[in-house]
Write a protein that binds this DNA or RNA. Structure first.
Length: 506
RNA sequence: GCACCGCUAGCUCAAUGGUAGAGCAGUUGACUCUUAAUCAAUUGGUUGAAGGUUCGAGUCCUUCGCGGUGCACCA
C-alpha cells in the first residue's frame, strides 16, 4: 500500500477505481518482494514446448493415464486462475500458440511456492515446468513442479469473457487487443504467413527482392498526393513514395531482370474501410514477360496464397464463398461493360459519350475522360465480380504507364484481377518507349496545371533511364493489405494493420 | 467534406426527464479435478468536454472532441 500515493502521478489521470486496481497489483508486487521474488529481475526461462504442439502430441492421453514422465517448460501470460481452497489452483497460461491449463498443488510445489503463486494476478507472465496429464473433464493439463514469475502486470486487464471490444481502444492499445483477443492474433499470424509465402513464391521463380527508397525528390508511379518531409543536413524537401514502380523499372533497365519489392507506400489521402494512409504493396517486374505470362504467374500466386492460408481453394468472405480454383474467369474490359451495362466501346472511348453514360447512370460529371471510365466501370462491372476474374484489354486513357496493344493503339496490354467486388491486382506490359513516356509526362504536366494535384510531377530521370533501353517487361502491383482482408475475412483494412493511424487522443 | 450511430465503474453492458445498476475483474472468507469454476460478503461513478432548457438531465437542445459506418474524394 505504500506504493499507492505515487500511482496517480505515474499513470497520469486515471479514475479512482483504476487507481485502486493498480494499487492492489502494486501491493501484490510488494508481497512478492517480501517473499524474495523479483519479477522484473527475471532474464530468461527455459521454454521447451508450446501449448498447441503439446495439445497435438498428447491428443491420445486419457484421464485414466498417469502423468506422462517427460517434463516440459512453458512460458506465457496468466489469463485465468481458478482457486480451489488452500491446496490447489487451476490456471490458464497463454503462449503464442494458445492456451495451456496448469494445475498447481500445495503438496507438489510446497508451502512457500504455493503462497507465491496465490498472490499472482491475471496478466502476470510466468514460466511453468511440469508433467502432463488429462483432467477428468478432458483438458490437457500441466501439473506444475516448479514455476517462475517472469514479469508483473501492474494494470487491470479487460473482462476475461468479453475481452476488449471498444474499437478505438483496440487500435490505440493494440497490445491489449492482442493479449485479449485470440482471433486478432490469428489475423496477424495469417498476415505474416501471407507475406512470407509471397516472398517465397517470388524467390522460387528467380525474382530478387529489392529495397528502393521511401524518400524521394519526386514521388511518381501513381496518381496520389504524397506526404512531404524534410532532410535537415541537405536542406531539401522530400516526398514519401506513392509507388515503387519507377525505381523497380530502373532496376530492370539495369539488367536485374526479375525484381520485386514488398514495400510500404504512403498516400496523403482519406481513410476508409479500404484505405489507410500507409499500406503495403507487392510490386514485381519481369523482363521478357508479356502480360499473359504475368497473368499466369498471378493466378498461380493467388491460388498458392489461398491454399497456404486455408488449405483449400475456397475463401469465405462476408456472406460469400469464393473459389480460387484455377483457371480464374477472364473477360475483356469493354465486353464487361457491354455485358452488364449495354454500352459499347465506341461510346465509351468518346469523351463526350462517356460523360453521357455517366449522366444516364445518375453519376456526377467527371473532370477527365479517364475518371469517367473508372466511375462507369466501378458502377457497372465491379458489383458483378465476385469470383476471381481477370479483366483485360484496358483503354490507354486510364493506363499512362502501360504499353499499347499491337494493332490497337487505343488499348493497352493490361489486366486487373478482381475478387469479392474489389481490385486485387493490376498488371501490364510496361511502356518502354522513352519518347512515348516523355509525351505522356508532358500531357500530365498540362493536367497538373489545370489543378489536378494528384498527378505527379514528371520524373525525367526515369525517361533518361528508358533511353538506355528497357527490355520488354511485364509488371504487377498487388495490395497486400487487401489480400489479407480477403483471406482473413475482414471488411476493414484497419483490422489487418497492426497500428492503424488514429487522431491523437483527446 | 456531408450524414447517421456511439462514448455510463478497469472491461462488457443496463437505466418511460424523477435516488446511476448488473456481470466480470478487485478485496475478504469457504472449497485439493476446476475451466466464463462455484458459494458468501464487499469496495468501486466528475455518465467524453463545455454550455443551455427544466423544480429536476446519463436521458432533451447547442457547440466541441474521439471513434465507427455510409456517401463524396481516392486505388
Amino acid at each position: 500500500m505504500s506504493d499507492a500515493p505515487a500511482l496517480a502521478d505515474e499513470a497520469g489521470e486515471v479514475g479512482r477505481r483504476e487507481a485502486e486496481l493498480r494499487a492492489a497489483r502494486r501491493a501484490n508486487l510488494a508481497a512478492l518482494h517480501e517473499r524474495g521474488v523479483e519479477p522484473f529481475r527475471a532474464d530468461r526461462y527455459e521454454v521447451t514446448a508450446h501449448a498447441a504442439e503439446l495439445g497435438e502430441r498428447f491428443a491420445a492421453l486419457t484421464p485414466d493415464d498417469p502423468p506422462h514422465s517427460d517434463a516440459f517448460g512453458l512460458a506465457g501470460r496468466l489469463m485465468a486462475a481458478r482457486k480451489m481452497g488452500k491446496g490447489a489452483i487451476w490456471a490458464d497460461v497463454w503462449d503464442r500458440s494458445g492456451r495451456m491449463q496448469i494445475y498447481v498443488r500445495l503438496d507438489a510445489v510446497g508451502e512457500d511456492a504455493f503462497a507465491i503463486f496465490d498472490t499472482l494476478d491475471i496478466g502476470d507472465v510466468v514460466g511453468v515446468n511440469g508433467t502432463l496429464f488429462r483432467s477428468k473433464k478432458g483438458d490437457l493439463t500441466l501439473r506444475v513442479a516448479s514455476f517462475a514469475v517472469l514479469s508483473k502486470s501492474l494494470v487491470p486487464l479487460p473482462d476475461k469473457f468479453h475481452g476488449l471490444v471498444d474499437v478505438e481502444k483496440r487500435y490505440r492499445q493494440r497490445y491489449v487487443d492482442l493479449i485479449m483477443n485470440e482471433d486478432v492474433r490469428a489475423i496477424f499470424v495469417a498476415r505474416s504467413k501471407i507475406v512470407s509465402e509471397m516472398r517465397r513464391f517470388c524467390d522460387a521463380r528467380g525474382f530478387m527482392e529489392c529495397e528502393t527508397p521511401t524518400m524521394l525528390h519526386v514521388a511518381g508511379g501513381a496518381a496520389a498526393r504524397p506526404f512531404r518531409t524534410h532532410h535537415n543536413a541537405l536542406d531539401v524537401d522530400l516526398d514519401l513514395r506513392i509507388a515503387t514502380e519507377l525505381n523497380l523499372k530502373r532496376l530492370i533497365v539495369g539488367g536485374l531482370e526479375r525484381v520485386y519489392e514488398i514495400g510500404r507506400i504512403f498516400r496523403n489521402e482519406g481513410i476508409d474501410t479500404t484505405h489507410n494512409p500507409e499500406f503495403t504493396m507487392l510490386e514485381l517486374y519481369a523482363a521478357y514477360w508479356s502480360v499473359d505470362e504475368m497473368m499466369a504467374f498471378n493466378e498461380d500466386l493467388f491460388a498458392h496464397l489461398v491454399h497456404a492460408v486455408h488449405g483449400r481453394d475456397e475463401v469465405t468472405y462476408g456472406e460469400r464463398t469464393i473459389s480460387f480454383a484455377r483457371p480464374f474467369k477472364r473477360i475483356a474490359y469493354f465486353d464487361a461493360i457491354a455485358t452488364w451495362g449495354g454500352y459499347d466501346r465506341a461510346t465509351l472511348l468518346d469523351p463526350a459519350g462517356a460523360q453521357r453514360v455517366l449522366a444516364e447512370l445518375g453519376l456526377p460529371p467527371s473532370q477527365t475522360h479517364g475518371q469517367a471510365l473508372d466511375k462507369i466501370f466501378e458502377r457497372i462491372v465491379e458489383p458483378n465480380l465476385v469470383d476471381p476474374t481477370f479483366v483485360f484489354d484496358y483503354p490507354v486513357v486510364i493506363s499512362p504507364l502501360a504499353k499499347r496493344k499491337a494493332g490497337d493503339p487505343e488499348i493497352v496490354d493490361r489486366y486487373e484481377l478482381f475478387g469479392a467486388n474489389f481490385e486485387l491486382s493490376n498488371a501490364f506490359t510496361e511502356l518502354n518507349d522513352p519518347d512515348d513516356q516523355r509525351a505522356r509526362f508532358e500531357a500530365q504536366i498540362v493536367e497538373r496545371k489545370t489543378g489536378n494535384d494528384e498527378v505527379p510531377p514528371p520524373d525525367w530521370d526515369f525517361v533518361a533511364a528508358l533511353e538506355y533501353g528497357m527490355p520488354p517487361t511485364a509488371g504487377i502491383g498487388i495490395g497486400v493489405d487487401r489480400i489479407v482482408m480477403l483471406l482473413t475475412n475482414n471488411q476493414s483494412i484497419r483490422e489487418v494493420i497492426l497500428f492503424p493511424l488514429q487522431r491523437p487522443q483527446a
